[in-house]
Computed example of a mutant assay.
Amino acid sequence: MADALEPEQLTTYFALMESASLLQHAVEQQLRSQSDLSHVQFQLLAKLAGTEGRMTMTELADGVVYSRSGLTHQAGLLEKEGLVTRAPSPDDQRATLVTITDAGRALVGRVLPGHIEVARRLLFEPLSDDDLRHLGDIMGRVRDHMRAQPPRSTAARRRRPPRAKERPAKG
């Protein structure tokens, strides 16, 4: 059994998790009030808008830390809305390229100011400039440490054990 976290580590962990949950909830409310986008869909569009406008599904999955199957579903919904297109990569026929459309860019442009306002009000307002530099440094190091692990998209998929009614009868 692993050693328990120290009290200060436990307090910090729960403060981080609660803060992230509160921020995500506020962002989801803002997105619902200004669009029909989920938080994940906004992340996908914003990631695409912040790049050259196209990425492979694997790059997107790793970039927004989302499962490949979940990303396929979300990209399909965005494609039905005309916000992205999907096509085989000309460089690798096994890869699928996702490209943001003009409508997708326009939607990000319309929703982003509210998103920024939520982040500014909830995350940055209580911090001094010095706090912000320290938090950015700390979170950057934590993120980089976590990103040094193999990306989720390269992890082997675990097969689920069969459910009780699917298991062969013992006999």
Rank of each mutant, 00 (worst) to 15 (best):
A2N: 10
D3A: 08
A4G: 08
E8V: 14
L10F: 14
L10P: 06
T11H: 12
T11N: 13
T12R: 02
T12M: 08
F14E: 12
S19L: 07
S19D: 11
A20Q: 12
A20R: 13
S21C: 07
L23I: 06
L23E: 04
H25V: 06
A26S: 07
V27Q: 15
E28S: 14
E28N: 12
Q30F: 03
Q30T: 10
R32S: 12
R32A: 14
Q34V: 12
S35T: 02
F42K: 07
Q43G: 12
L44M: 15
L45M: 09
L45T: 03
L45N: 09
K47L: 15
A49M: 05
G50K: 05
G50T: 04
T51R: 15
E52W: 04
G53W: 04
R54H: 01
R54E: 04
M55C: 12
T58A: 07
T58W: 03
T58R: 08
L60N: 05
L60Q: 05
A61H: 01
G63Y: 03
R68A: 03
R68N: 07
T72E: 10
G76E: 05
L77E: 09
L83K: 01
L83V: 00
T85D: 06
R86V: 08
P88W: 09
S89R: 06
S89A: 04
D91I: 04
D92K: 08
Q93C: 04
Q93T: 06
Q93G: 01
R94V: 04
A95Y: 03
A95L: 06
L97P: 02
V98D: 08
T99D: 09
T99P: 02
I100A: 00
I100N: 00
I100T: 02
I100F: 00
T101W: 05
D102A: 02
A103M: 11
R105K: 07
G109C: 02
L112Q: 15
L112F: 14
P113S: 09
G114M: 00
E117T: 06
E117R: 09
V118D: 11
R120M: 15
R121G: 10
L123I: 06
L123P: 05
E125F: 13
P126F: 00
P126R: 03
L127Y: 01
L127P: 01
S128F: 02
S128K: 03
D129R: 14
D130N: 02
D130S: 00
D131A: 00
R133Q: 04
R133L: 05
R133I: 01
H134C: 08
H134R: 14
H134A: 11
I138M: 14
I138G: 10
I138C: 13
R141E: 03
R141S: 00
V142L: 10
Q149F: 08
P151N: 05
P151I: 01
P151S: 03
T154H: 03
A155P: 02
A156Q: 13
R159S: 10
R159F: 08
P161V: 03
R163L: 12
R163E: 09
R163V: 07
A164T: 12
A164V: 13
A164H: 14
K165S: 09
K165Y: 08
R167P: 03
P168F: 08
P168R: 13
A169P: 04
A169S: 11
G171M: 14
G171Q: 15
G171T: 13
